[in-house]
Nucleic acid binder design. Sequence first.
RNA 1: UCCUCGAUAGCUCAACGGUAGAGCAACCGGCUGUUAACCGGUAGGCUGUAGGUUCGAAUCCUACUCGGGGAGCCA
Length: 463
Amino acid sequence: MEAATVKELYAEKEKYLNKKILVNGWVRTARPSKAFGFIELNDGSFFSNIQVVYDDKLENYNEVSKLITGSAIIVAGQIVESPGAKQPFELKAESIEVQGLSSPDYPLQKKRHTFEYLRTIAHLRPRTNTFSAVFRIRSIAAYAIHKFFQENGFVHVHTPIITGSDAEGAGNMFRVSILDFDRTPHNEKSAVDFTKDFFGKETNLTVSGQLEAETYCMAFSKVYTFGPTFRAENSNTPRHAAEFWMLEPEIAFAGLAENMDLAEAMLKFIVSYVLENTPEEMRFLNSFVDKSLLERLESMVESTFGHLTYTEAVDILKKSGQQFEYPVAWGIDLQTEHERYITEKHFGKPVFITDYPKEIKAFYMRMNDDGRTVAAMDLLVPGIGELVGGSQREERLGFLEKRMFELGLNKEDYWWYLDIRKYGGVRHAGFGLGFERLLMYLTGMTNIRDVISFPRTPKNAEF
RNA sequence: UCCUCGAUAGCUCAACGGUAGAGCAACCGGCUGUUAACCGGUAGGCUGUAGGUUCGAAUCCUACUCGGGGAGCCA
């Protein structure tokens, strides 16, 4: 007998109707009665379940009617039209083989659980509707990212996870070491002697692949890196994790305008691709997680992103008549409340803010002609805040060295980064996108711990 | 890290300082088309941890741990 996935059954109902097939899956719910029963079966291929109908003609009817949620079974039977209103067809079982019994203490029940509870059983939560939807969308969105860049001539660079440069000060880092913590070797200055460590120097988990990606950009013109990133910040918020995935494209012979166009085109592509390829998941999330999700995503694809400079943003905020907790003045970093006002209240759509004061931005951003702002851009989106942060990079060796000196960075530590300015350096730009932030935007989930399979946050590394 | 709220049965929640309860899940039974099925029954607890106040603490106080929300840092 031919096996079919639930996805295939829904995709080609006519082909399978009245045919005999095998379906594997896990019991989502069971509704037994005296001489017959129903099982909602999910095989993971598709968001929806298939309803299995069985009766006491089954050899192992007693065993089947006692099946507990979570059990794994193989059903052989016929696909028939369903008299029930909630499904177009159902599987009339001729035999049900029990592959793996569940247990009475199975933690997932036939009711809604809180996301907080489901986090404590992160190994089981992908079996729930919400997490099934979220993690299939995560997979599809990652694919959409690769598809977009590959089809636009970008080269995917795998930048290192263990890094020897304490790059760009993008937050505290996780040290990578094989030294014995109880007996660390010390040098003559009684500091820890990292020459005795595995790499012969201090190494850490990467906080960004950008600097390495820039070097490949100077060879391939258009590159992107997409992988795990680590920040040892004691951030206890629904938007931060210690381990998260970041996408960082980098384009040569291009400036800030091309950079923003790229970000806008990429985001619209990803959103469209997800809407097109996960309609069942999106419908579910729209009804149970965020009722404005579909409307927001669809209008984002249709919209033209707004553009304004930091200076203009400060003006808008000052003239807004709003009472902000943090008063607005040129030179301050925009606070969450400011960003939300701009993107949600003033524009009501995604908006790029450009040309920030150099003091609040990183050393590698290109100095503007005014000498006080840099060619940076942040993309703010309603509901999430900052989704993308990027800049045109400082390609002029003299400017870059001067800026590093002002910030007390050691030139020798960045010799290879400076080299690419020396040998055919050219204007280039790029941005970073927190993949989980994007997923929160795509799914309506409001906690980053619920869009990454096994979240790593302060005091939490279970699983 | 700061502010704030919370922690009671497997889950979701009740309980005036005076014997700890319900719904769901589990288990047992009933039910011939269910849709988080339905109906009846059984069992299930050192009230997050450690102290304190009190004749008496789930309830009041302190500390800690963990979790939610907000802020900072940031993606």
